[in-house]
Design a protein around this nucleic acid. Structure first.
Lengths: 213, 213
DNA sequence: TTTGTAATATTAACAGTGTTAAGTAATTTT
DNA sequence: AAAATTACTTAACACTGTTAATATTACAAA
């Protein structure tokens, strides 16, 4: 019964082709502008064919969300070699911010938009967002390492990890929505662009943590 | 020539009526579900009539964004009477978080969605987001007060303010997108709901700042 | 009071969206 | 060869924001 397997493989190939087309449109024009019809046109199939492989548009959104997490984990991979936990925490923060700057559309899909998480909740209620947990576990371990070095003393690990996540996500989110741009222009040192401003704010966070030890 | 004034007043009344209908639909069904046609049906006018008073949908989005800032400033008003700057900073943070929890749709429109800021940039390029600046100025002053008390020592005021904003915005944003919910469930203390988790993370931030003095 | 004009509101339409039901063609199984 | 399954498409539904052309109304001047 190798036929069934071959068909299954073909099906997976087709899903990948659709996702590739979706990704191409998505990274160039954003999520909203990536319509089912345009994806279909890209792979030269009828729009309804998409629905034979993906349940609905949020299904595609979640697949792209997963793709985004693959990209993020790729960036985080090198951090394993940073032995000093606090250095690793700083590097993680900067890698996270840089990812958001380099791939704003992916970042939005992963951390700002509701669709992927809604899909997750609607169609896989038992699973608990594996992509997010994998990355968050890395952060937890790093924070634990920091605690061993004397940082975050007498503070709950998970809350400290979430604080660090909130800091960088807050920065990235406000940057992408161009809120920072509008605030930065008003500030005295209006020389600096939003990106270096983000870096400076992150530095302040690092400074704060350093004084904790 | 009081006629022109009366007409102008009527025009403003009508704009307010449209906005009221939009707000009603918006708070009950969210922004995406608030279509021009539904707003028109609500005030029993033709859909195209809306366009005589508002340029496009993002114009309405920005008007609601302003409405949201009025609500937020209302909540922040009482903070003026908190004399101790650090107490005020803590109260500001909690008021901000509570606002996001109580009015998630408004919060999204004000700090997550791109439409209002895009409208601002497209139609009023000279102005610099007055709503945001007013609130942010209050934060700046509070941070300056904290510095006088010894907090944020040797740290740039604006960056410290932005850090505090990023912390609470990160928390609110991750909460609204239900990212926290999915992470919280996995954590050991899965007893607590996302809201008390936010409070605990904010407490950690407060703790961190307290140790700085 | 009638008429002309300007303001205001409406209908119809365009170009698009996600999604589903029904139908067709090809392939595989009986 | 006939029947059944699979893969795909066409047509359609019910929406969306938005615009052009048209109708209605209100109001000032004759």
């Amino acid at each position: 019964m190798g036929i069934k397997e071959r068909k299954e493989r073909h099906r997976e190939d087709f899903k990948a082709r659709i996702l590739e087309a979706a990704k191409k449109l998505f990274v160039t024009h954003g999520y909203e502008a990536t319509s089912i019809r345009k994806i279909a046109a890209e792979i030269e199939f009828s729009p309804t064919t998409i629905y034979l492989y993906y349940k609905d548009k949020t299904d595609i959104a979640y697949a792209l969300h997963q793709e985004g997490f693959r990209l993020l984990r790729e960036r985080f991979a090198v951090l394993e070699f940073v032995d000093n936990a606090f250095d690793r925490l700083k590097a993680m923060g900067r890698a996270y911010i840089q990812f958001a700057v380099d791939h704003p559309d992916f970042y939005e899909l992963m951390f700002v938009m509701k669709e992927p998480m809604q899909y997750l909740q609607a169609h896989h209620p038992e699973e608990e967002w594996p992509e997010g947990e994998r990355v968050f576990d890395g952060l937890i371990q790093t924070v634990e390492g920091c605690k061993a070095q004397g940082y975050f003393a007498a503070m709950p690990t998970e809350e400290a990890a979430m604080l660090s996540w909130s800091v960088v996500h807050g920065l990235c989110s406000l940057h992408i929505t161009s809120h920072f741009k509008h605030i930065a222009e008003k500030c005295n040192h209006s020389i600096s662009d939003p990106e270096t401003l983000m870096e400076r704010v992150f530095q302040v966070y690092v400074q704060v943590l350093e004084r904790l030890r």
